[in-house]
Simulated assay, not measured.
Amino acid sequence: MSHGDEKGYGSSSGRTDDGYSTIGGTRQTRTRFPDGEGGDGYNTPRRPARNSRSLVTVVGVVVLLIAAIAFANMGGGGGGGDSSGGSGNGGSKPDSSSTAATGTKPVDGKNGTIASGFAHDDQGAQSAAANYSVALGSAEMFDKAKRDSILHAVIAPSAVNGFRTTLDQAYSTGLFKNLGLNDDGSTPTGFTFISRTTPIGTKVTKSSTDQATVEVWCTGLIGLAGEGSTKPVADGWFTITMELKWVSGDWKAVTHSQKDGPAPVGGDTRASSADEIAGAVNGFGGFTYAR
């Protein structure tokens, strides 16, 4: 729910040994400028680097592991909805269809807690990819029984066994310890474990009647909220590429890969307390995404 040279993305791959392969990952790439040449465009001095944030980022990066289970790293196609209407600054304006609602009624089907019954077109593929990104980047993936249920709901039957085998190896005792969880992946008493992926937008890069490749631009949260936590909740930005196939009347995922960004400039919003973060995650539910 990242990667220049991505290892472990072949059809027989297991988990990559790159610690920056993520599922909904939180790795952030920063360009450091000398004072007076900050990236804000106003020649203001750059704020001092926050080493603690870098440490949190490294910890969070190992969590969302779906990129490591991809069986094919799909390249970008010729899709895209941008128009070239920009003038004066050399940029381009987005097509109105990239931000406007379609007016199509959202899906009303459910496969467990995951949306189902998507339209057999590009719009339905985008909606499926967005919803599946949320499910595959959720905290439920750290529970074996819930993980298997999610895989059966979102992965094509022909690919489920491969995904399950790789993920069972990836969600290991060592990973749980690195995240501050118990050996079985459960959350220690007094803490709230947070792993949440939120799609920002989608686009189709390749499509045919029964297949589509969709990119989902996401932001995510990962960490352990609670007093004394050494793994505080951090955020990240990433793009998931998902190949989907029309199977038995619905879209199902057959491959999944991920790369960092695009990431906006970090704001100066005060970091909330652990109690505030835990309260927000428990109090605000997620969405069913439909284009």
Rank of each mutant, 00 (worst) to 15 (best):
G117M: 08
D122C: 04
Y289M: 05
T255L: 01
R15I: 08
R50Y: 10
A153L: 04
L167D: 03
A278Q: 03
G41T: 04
S87G: 09
L55I: 10
N89D: 04
D168T: 14
A278C: 05
V247P: 01
D82Q: 15
F71L: 08
D183L: 00
A67V: 06
A130I: 06
T31P: 00
Q123A: 11
I114F: 02
D148F: 11
R27P: 04
E243V: 11
E140Q: 12
K231C: 00
Q211F: 15
S273T: 14
G180S: 09
R291I: 04
G201M: 10
R270H: 06
G24S: 14
I194N: 06
G76E: 08
G80M: 05
T22P: 02
A119S: 05
A253R: 03
W251R: 04
A271Q: 10
S186P: 03
V247L: 01
T202E: 03
G77N: 06
D268Q: 13
G220V: 12
V56T: 08
Q169R: 15
H120I: 02
P106D: 06
G39F: 04
A225T: 02
L151W: 06
V62E: 01
D5C: 07
R164V: 09
D95F: 09
D148M: 07
G8E: 09
V281Y: 15
A234L: 10
G267K: 09
L167G: 00
S127E: 01
E243K: 15
V59C: 09
A67S: 12
I23G: 08
S116M: 10
V254C: 12
I155R: 06
V62P: 02
D184L: 08
A139M: 03
G249N: 07
G81K: 15
V233F: 05
T192M: 05
K144W: 03
T198R: 15
G223K: 12
R46Y: 02
S83L: 14
Y20H: 14
A156W: 07
H120K: 15
D210C: 03
T255W: 05
R32N: 14
Q28S: 15
S138V: 03
D275M: 08
T187P: 07
Q123S: 13
V154I: 01
F191H: 11
A159S: 13
I23R: 13
F287T: 12
T241W: 05
D260A: 13
S158W: 05
A274D: 11
Q28L: 11
L244Y: 13
L65G: 00
G109M: 06
N43S: 10
S87F: 15
N161V: 12
L136S: 03
A212H: 07
Y289T: 02
Q211K: 15
G283H: 09
G36C: 03
P264H: 04
I150C: 04
S54H: 14
D275T: 11
E243C: 09
M74A: 01
I23C: 11
D210N: 12
D108Y: 11
F71D: 00
T44M: 10
G124I: 10
P157R: 09
F284I: 13
G228K: 14
S83V: 14
G137N: 01
A72V: 08
T189P: 01
S84I: 11
D168C: 02
T192A: 13
T241M: 07
Q258E: 10
